[in-house]
Write a protein that binds this DNA or RNA. Structure first.
Length: 589
DNA sequence: CTTTTCACAGTCGCGCGGATGGGA
DNA sequence: TCCCATCCGCGCGACTGTGAAAAG
C-alpha cells in the first residue's frame, strides 16, 4: 500500500463509502442547539467549573447530563431486597431496581457486602432498564474524603470525541481505545476501595452513520442484557494503592456477545450503534458490618463526558479510524510507510522539517498536511515553538477539533473530576485543551503540567510507562524496565496543590468551560461533538494521515500530578452518598 | 442496503530456551 | 567442571484495522 498511491490517491480508509469521507458531526441534528463548540470548536463559550456545592447540587444543571436528577430520591436496592437511600445531589444513578450479583459472580472480593447491579445501565430516566446500581458498604465516618479523579488521557479522548468516538465491539471482545485511565486522589490511604468502570447508555437513541455524520435512528434497545461493569483487577485495594499510580482499564474489553458476561469478566456487553457513557465507580469496601444507610456515602461516581462513545462493529467514520491507527500502538501496522509516503520537495512544505526528528521531514509532504493537528502534535515537542507558530496560525482550526499539542507538547494534563456533580450540566470542556494547545503555540494559556518526555519511549512517549504498563499489560512491567531510565518519579505526591500554581487567570476559563448548560435533551448537548460544521481537519485532511514514528503519546500521561493543583477543588460537605461528577481538572504552572 | 462476521497481515510484548560469561 | 546469572533470538499469542463475505 505505501508507495502504491500517489499523494492524491485515496487512502484506504477513504475507499469506503462516501459517507465515511465526511468528518461527521455526530448528532448534529439533535445537538445543534446550544452547542458550545461553535466556530473554532473550542468556541467562545467556556464551561464553568464551579467549586460551589450549591451549583453542583443544582438539579437543573445536572439534568443536562444526568436526568436522574428529576427522579425522586434515589434508592439503592440490595439483593436482599433492602434498600438504602442515596443522597445523590444530581440525581440518582441507581435505578431503584434491585441489584444483581451475577456480575460479580466469581469475584470473591466482592462477595459479601454488596453486589453490582447490571442491566441496561441507563443514565437517563426514560429507560426502564434494570439499572446499574452500585451499593457500597459503609465505612467508619470520616474515613476517606471526597476523591478527585483525573482522566489521564483526556486529551486523547477529546481528539476522538471531536469526531464522535467509536468503539469496536466484537464477539471475542475488543479493547477500548482510548482506554480509560485515571489518577485518583483524595482517598483515605488505609481504607480499601473497589474501583470499577460501568458503561451505561448515554442516550435513548439508536444511532446510525448517515451522510457522514451520526444521526439518531429510532429508539435504543434498552433490554440489552449482559455485564455492564468491569471491576479493576486490583480491586479491592487501599486508597494508597489506588493513588499510587494510574488506574488503567486498558484490558477492559467490549463485546456484543451476550453470552460473554458470565464467561469473561473482562468484557462489557454493549449493543452496536448505541451510545454509551463510561463511569468510574469508587466504592469503599466495608471492613465491618455497617448498616445500609451508610453505604451510600461510600460510593463515588465519576463521569467524563469526553469518554462517551458509540459502539460499532465496524468503524464508520474514517477520522476515527485514522485516529485509532495513529494513536493505538496495536494498529501500528496500518500506519503509512513514511519513507515512501513523503517524497515531496522540502519547498512544498509549509512546516520546516525538524532536524531533531529523523522522520519528521517525511511527515509533512505538503502544505495540505502541515496543519494536521496530530501531525503537529507528534513533533511539536521536538521543535521550537516558533517553527510551528506560523503554521498553527495560518490554518485556523475551524472546527476547533484538536488541540493536540496538549498531549504532545510534553505537557500532558491531568483532568480531574470530583465526585460531586458539577453544575456544568456535563458540558464537555475544551478550554483546557485549548489552553494546553496554547501552551506551546499561543501567547496566552492554561499551561498544562510539564511532563518530560523521553524519545526512548517513543511509542508511548509522554504517556509512558505507567499507562502502558497499566493499560496494555501489567502495571509493573514497563515500570520495571523503564523506571530507571526515567528522569522523573512516577509516584508524585498529588494530593496537595499549592495555590501558587494556579493562576487566577486560568480559573475563569475553566469555570466558563463548565458553565451551566441546557437541560438534558435527547442527546446531551454538551456532548455534542465539537464541531457543527465541516472541520478544516476533516476537509483538508481527508487523505490518510500518518503518525510519526508511532508515538501514541497521549495515550495516557505517565506522571501523577505532582505539580498540579486543582483550580476548583470542590469542597463537598454534603452528606450525599453518591456523587457523580465530571469536570476536567485544570492545573496551571 | 445495512450490519455483522471472519480471515488476514502487520506489530508488538512476553516467555522460553540456548549461548555466553563469571564465580565457586 | 559445575552452577548461576545475564543476554539474545525465536516463536507464539494478543492486538489492531482492512476488506470481503455472510447475514439480516
Amino acid at each position: 500500500m505505501p508507495g502504491e498511491e500517489d499523494s492524491d490517491a485515496p487512502m484506504p480508509s477513504q475507499r469506503a463509502t462516501d459517507e465515511r469521507k465526511v468528518s461527521p458531526v455526530s448528532g448534529e441534528d439533535n445537538l445543534s442547539n446550544s452547542s458550545p463548540y461553535v466556530g473554532d470548536g473550542v468556541g467562545t463559550n467556556r464551561y464553568f467549573i464551579t467549586s460551589s456545592s450549591q451549583q453542583m447540587q443544582d438539579s437543573s444543571n445536572l439534568c443536562s447530563f444526568l436526568p436522574y436528577a428529576n427522579q425522586p430520591g434515589p434508592v439503592c436496592a440490595g439483593t436482599d431486597g433492602s434498600r438504602y437511600p442515596t443522597s445523590i445531589h444530581y440525581g440518582s444513578v441507581l435505578p431503584s431496581t434491585g441489584f444483581s450479583s451475577s456480575v460479580c459472580a466469581g469475584r470473591s472480593q466482592f462477595g459479601s457486602g454488596y453486589q453490582f447491579g447490571h442491566g441496561s445501565g441507563n443514565i437517563y430516566p426514560s429507560y426502564q432498564g434494570t439499572g446499574s446500581g452500585i451499593a457500597s458498604m459503609g465505612l467508619p465516618a470520616g474515613t476517606g474524603g471526597r476523591a478527585q479523579v483525573y482522566l489521564c488521557n483526556r486529551p486523547l479522548w477529546l481528539k476522538f470525541h471531536r469526531h464522535q468516538t467509536e468503539m469496536i465491539i466484537t464477539k471475542q471482545g475488543r479493547r477500548m481505545f482510548p482506554f480509560l485511565s485515571f489518577n485518583i486522589t483524595g482517598l483515605n490511604l488505609s481504607t480499601h476501595y473497589n474501583v470499577f468502570v460501568e458503561i451505561v447508555l448515554a442516550d435513548p437513541n439508536h444511532w446510525r452513520f448517515q451522510g457522514g455524520k451520526w444521526v439518531t435512528c429510532g429508539k435504543a434497545d434498552n433490554n440489552m442484557q449482559g455485564n455492564k461493569i468491569y471491576v479493576h483487577p486490583e480491586s479491592p485495594n487501599t486508597g494508597a494503592h489506588w493513588m499510587r499510580q494510574e488506574i488503567s482499564f486498558g484490558k477492559l474489553k467490549l463485546t456484543n456477545n451476550k453470552g460473554a458476561n458470565n464467561s469473561n469478566a473482562q468484557m462489557i456487553v454493549l449493543q452496536s450503534l448505541h451510545k454509551y457513557q463510561p463511569r468510574l465507580h469508587i466504592v469503599e469496601v466495608p471492613e465491618d458490618g455497617l448498616d445500609d444507610v451508610r453505604r451510600e456515602a461510600k460510593t463515588q461516581i465519576f463521569v467524563f463526558p469526553e469518554s462517551q462513545f458509540i459502539a460499532v462493529t465496524a468503524y464508520q467514520n474514517t477520522d476515527i479510524t485514522q485516529l485509532k491507527i495513529d494513536h493505538n500502538p496495536f494498529a501500528k501496522g496500518f500506519r503509512d510507510n513514511y519513507d515512501s509516503m513523503y517524497t515531496a520537495p522540502e519547498g512544498d512544505r509549509l512546516t520546516p522539517s525538524p532536524t531533531e526528528s529523523p522522520r519528521s521531514h517525511q511527515l509533512v509532504p505538503s502544505g495540505r498536511y502541515t496543519m494536521q493537528p496530530f501531525l503537529q502534535d507528534q513533533f511539536v515537542n521536538s521543535l521550537p515553538h516558533s517553527r510551528f507558530y506560523n503554521s498553527e496560525r495560518a490554518v485556523p482550526q475551524a472546527n476547533g477539533i484538536l488541540s493536540p499539542q496538549v498531549e504532545d507538547t510534553g505537557a500532558p494534563q491531568r483532568w480531574l473530576v470530583t465526585p460531586v456533580q458539577q453544575g456544568s450540566g456535563g458540558k464537555l470542556d475544551l478550554a483546557g485543551y485549548e489552553g494546553d494547545y496554547s501552551t506551546s503555540l499561543l501567547p496566552y494559556t492554561l499551561k498544562s503540567l510539564p511532563l518530560q518526555t523521553s524519545h526512548s519511549l517513543s511509542y508511548y512517549s509522554d504517556s509512558a510507562f505507567t499507562s502502558v504498563a497499566a493499560g496494555w499489560g501489567s502495571r509493573g512491567a514497563y515500570q520495571k524496565k523503564m523506571a530507571s531510565a526515567l528522569p522523573w518519579s512516577p509516584r508524585p505526591g498529588h494530593t496537595d496543590f499549592p495555590d501558587s500554581q494556579m493562576p487566577d487567570k486560568d480559573k475563569p476559563r475553566e469555570e466558563e468551560a463548565f458553565a451551566p448548560g441546557p437541560a438534558w435533551v435527547e442527546t446531551m448537548p454538551f456532548l455534542k461533538p465539537l464541531d457543527s460544521e465541516p472541520s478544516v481537519y476533516s476537509v483538508v485532511c481527508k487523505r490518510r494521515r500518518v503518525s510519526h514514528g508511532g508515538s501514541s503519546t497521549e495515550n495516557s500521561p505517565t506522571i501523577k500530578c505532582e505539580d498540579s493543583r486543582p483550580l476548583t477543588f470542590r469542597k463537598e460537605t454534603s452528606s450525599s452518598s453518591k456523587n457523580i461528577g465530571y469536570c476536567p481538572f485544570y492545573a496551571a504552572t
